[in-house]
Write a protein that binds this DNA or RNA. Structure first.
Lengths: 211, 211
DNA sequence: TACAATGTTGCATTGAATGCAAAAATGCAA
DNA sequence: TTGCATTTTTGCATTCAATGCAACATTGTA
């Protein structure tokens, strides 16, 4: 079922066909989702369009939702890699900004970014989308903590930093949806982060004199 | 179906029975969920335990998940009220800290807080839980913006502040789960916020010298 | 009591998801 | 090429959530 590469040969007919079928299902599903909406599309619609049996769908994806989010898994992985690639003595703040900016820019014209609107208007998907951010946040916190040598006292700090940054990413993603079409992702990312750190400093100052 | 109070009399037998039935379903559902887990509990199990027909379940709750989250709606409302109750000239930072602390303390020993673990170990519920935070965040941003006279330029700032604070609330809620049992909610909340503002200031400072 | 409104139930239906076993396609070795 | 083991695909049956509808029951009120 999964890739069992006991003989590490080049991709044979089996692997290739399997990959093709997967892509066909994904493509058919996306087209239909965007056309008629997520709920109004049945699995049978999809498998018919992709010319496979209804049962086979679940051999490729565990659920209807997964088709929408399958591609997103790679984002988290790439972000983790980007974090790990930063020089060790660098401050956490610089690290996240650099890593996120690089990963977002590298992912910006991938399939699935057009899905924002679909996700937004489909409650089940929206919930699922939030879960994705939660996972991302957790992974980010772990990656950041690792850079601190895993010091347990740093854990809450890194959790909060991760929450803040992913929160900003989430808000940023929404603002991006309604950007003027001319904006470059580089400028946009830089601007978001500049604003974020400025706000953090301001809120921090405000709080110092709060009582 | 819904409360149609054309004659504003005191709660008659109808309303009372309906409320009682709702509570019975809720009670039965919660007990079973905690006993056997969410997925392993069917609607029929619940309705049987609550002694109503399977069909009636959907007359009280739109879905299985809703039973778990029904009680939570009131939290957001109370938080909004707490925000609105703060004096107008106060800084946003002080406002959120005061309002959230008050609301959390007032809600801390309500039903449903024991559900944290159940939600945590049930993927569907976890997704739904995240959605709840997202909604809360949105409402908080709106409430904060309203205090700024609705100035559109403040919108992104308030969105980010809301994201940060709700992020902290989320992390705080998780830390609370594994607190030493002696901690008072007051002290806990104060500590969380103190840490949060301190971190914000630090991250802000770090960022100032980042290039 | 009679009547209207509201609540409850049973029944049928759709659609997602899963298990299982038969059938088909593929890779490989003789 | 043929035969055989492995993997993939499919059909079929089943469970469960969710919805619509119409019959039936309960309640409030004239």
């Amino acid at each position: 079922m999964a890739e069992n590469k006991r003989t590490e040969t080049t991709e044979g007919r089996r692997e290739r066909k399997r990959r093709q079928t997967r892509e066909r299902i994904e493509q058919a599903a996306m087209t239909l989702f965007l056309q008629r909406g997520f709920d109004a599309t049945t699995i049978e619609d999809i498998t018919e369009a992709a010319d496979v049996s209804k049962r086979s769908f679940f051999d490729y994806f565990p659920s209807k939702e997964e088709v929408v989010f399958a591609w997103q898994d790679s984002f988290a992985d790439r972000l983790m890699a980007a974090i790990a690639a930063r020089p060790a003595p660098e401050s956490s703040v610089v690290t996240v900004e650099a890593a996120i900016t690089a990963t977002v820019i590298a992912s910006v014209d991938e399939p699935g970014l057009a899905l924002g609107e679909l996700i937004h208007r489909t409650p089940v998907l929206k919930a699922r989308d939030q879960l994705k951010y939660a996972k991302l946040e957790q992974k980010l916190a772990e990656a950041l903590l690792l850079r601190k040598g895993g010091d347990p006292l740093e854990r809450p700090r890194m959790r909060v930093l991760a929450a803040i940054v992913i929160g900003a990413l989430r808000v940023g993603a929404e603002l991006w949806q309604q950007r003027p079409p001319s904006t470059s992702p580089q400028d946009f990312a830089r601007e978001i982060f500049t604003d974020l750190w400025k706000m953090l400093a301001e809120f921090g100052d405000e709080a110092k004199t709060r009582r």
